[in-house]
Structure formats: C-alpha cells, structure tokens
C-alpha cells in the first residue's frame, strides 16, 4: 500500500497544477450522427460540476469518451495534464478516474462484498493473485469501509442480483469510490431513488474529500444544484452554457430549453 500511495503522491506532485480534466475539440460521430461536436471543457482539480441537458444531448456519450469506452472521432482528452486520448479504459482508471453507470453495471453473480473488493483490487497491485485475501487484508478492510459508507452493511453477503434497485444504485456509487479516486464521473446516480435515498446520496456526495472532483449528470435539479459548484448545459451534442448554479437556474434560455421544456 505504501508503494501505491507514493506513486499516487508522485503523480499528484508531478501533475499538481494541471487541470483534472481538459477536453479539446472532442467530437464523436455514430455514423453520420454527431453525438458530440467540438466539446471544450476544463474541470479544475477538486471542482464539482453538474452536466445538464435533455435526453440525447450527449451527456453519457461524453462520459463514455472520457473513460475510453468509446474512442472519440476527433479531439483530445487530458487527465491531470496527461494526454489519455488513446489509453484503454483500465489505464485511465489506474490514473485516478472513476465512473458510475446510468444503468447499473454490477456483478450479479457475486456478493456485495466481492463486488466492492474487486473495485478496490482493480486499482491496486496483485490483480492476478491466486492467493485468497487474508482476514487482515487492507483492501478487504477498505471494501468494508465503503460498504458502510453507502449503507449496505446489512447486505454485504447478499448476491448483487438479489439486491433492490436502490441498493444496486448505492453499490454503483461504492464501486466508483474504491481505491482513492481523484476524479469521478457520476451518471445519474439518483435516478430511481426514493426521497430518503436521494438525501443519503447528496450527503455522500457533499462529504467526499475536497480534493476529489467530479462531474455529475443528473436530471433532479435538487440533487444536481446542491452538490455542484458549476454547471454545464449540453444541447444536441454541444456545450450550450456554463456557469454557476444560480446563473443557470435563472437563465431564460436554459429555462426555455430545459427546465420549462416539459421534459420528463
């Protein structure tokens, strides 16, 4: 663990002043359809930003390009100053990037604990270890901590396929917070949650360590504007407006397009 911590520390010191995320001219085509067109976006380290926009605005495509699930058609992606445009997803994750998925992508055949343990293992060494973790295993301990943080302690032995929808969403967040993330992409983490679960989620997000920046896609303005300090509005694959939550909320164009647009 110390070796790992020092590599993170050296990376942070090497890239300390760089922006967490820098997108330049990012474009993604699906055939003739431009899902993203010339996206320029800069997120400072520790900054928390909400991305808003109606369905089909390109928000999830943006996430998929940043994590490397899809390669961009054009443009560059810099993560903490490093050009990761052509890196495979796992290399980006090992550099401190994390994400959650709009539709939970979990390991249905494994228990909650094993799911979180895998997430912790994925960003540390000995991923190929053939030896079972010992009882005092540090990663197992951090997995237990994460399970507690997302209020799943009672379900830690349950198969993920048997969890309720809300619990799966909570687990989705836990997986993204494993192993000292530096920058997280949350894709509609509150979708389908009950009001109580939403409050818990907002609490988890606002209590994240201050160096941990994130981008959150969220339709629920209560959640989005409470946890974010800046807002990016997307429309038809382009960035439409950027600003503080209050500015965005009161912006007439935004209201016409999105808030009052009868989406639902």
């Amino acid at each position: 663990m110390t070796a790992r911590a020092s590599t993170v520390a050296s990376r942070i010191s090497a890239t300390g002043t760089a922006n967490a995320l820098e997108l330049r001219g990012l474009t993604r085509m699906f055939g003739a359809l431009a899902a993203l067109t010339d996206i320029n976006l800069t997120v400072r380290p520790g900054e928390r930003r909400a991305v808003l926009g109606s369905n089909g605005a390109g928000k999830t495509t943006l996430f998929n390009c940043i994590t490397g699930d899809f390669p961009p058609t054009a443009g560059t992606i810099r993560l903490f100053g490093e050009d990761v445009t052509h890196f495979p997803p796992h290399e980006r994750i090992r550099r401190g990037l994390r994400r959650t998925y709009q539709i939970s992508l979990l390991f249905a055949g494994l228990s909650v604990r094993d799911n979180v343990y895998l997430a912790c293992r994925g960003v540390s060494r000995y991923r190929f270890s053939l030896l079972r973790p010992r009882r005092d295993d540090a990663l197992m301990a951090s997995a237990e901590g994460l399970i507690e943080a997302v209020h799943l302690s009672d379900a830690r032995e349950t198969l993920v396929g048997d969890l309720s929808y809300g619990q799966q969403r909570q687990l989705e967040v836990a997986l993204a917070l494993a192993g000292a993330p530096r920058f997280v992409l949350f894709d509609e983490p509150a979708a389908g949650l009950s009001p109580t679960e939403r409050r818990e989620l907002v609490e988890i997000l606002t209590n994240l360590p201050s160096h941990m920046g994130f981008i959150i896609i969220e339709h629920d303005m209560d959640v989005a504007l409470r946890v974010a300090e800046s807002v990016t509005m997307m429309h038809n694959g382009r960035i439409f407006k950027e600003g503080k939550p209050a500015e965005i909320e009161s912006d007439a164009e935004v209201q016409a397009l999105y808030l009052g647009g009868g989406h639902g």
Partner: peptide, 20 residues
Amino acid sequence: PFGLALQGVRDNPRRMRALG
C-alpha cells in the same frame, strides 16, 4: 482475487475495465 475478477469479467467485462 484472480477468480473473483474472472467472475467479474464473466458478469460484466465493461465494468471490469472501468474498475481498472
């Protein structure tokens, strides 16, 4: 870890990439 990760790959390779 290896076996758990293999089952993770079976259930959801895309998510495994997103876990590093």
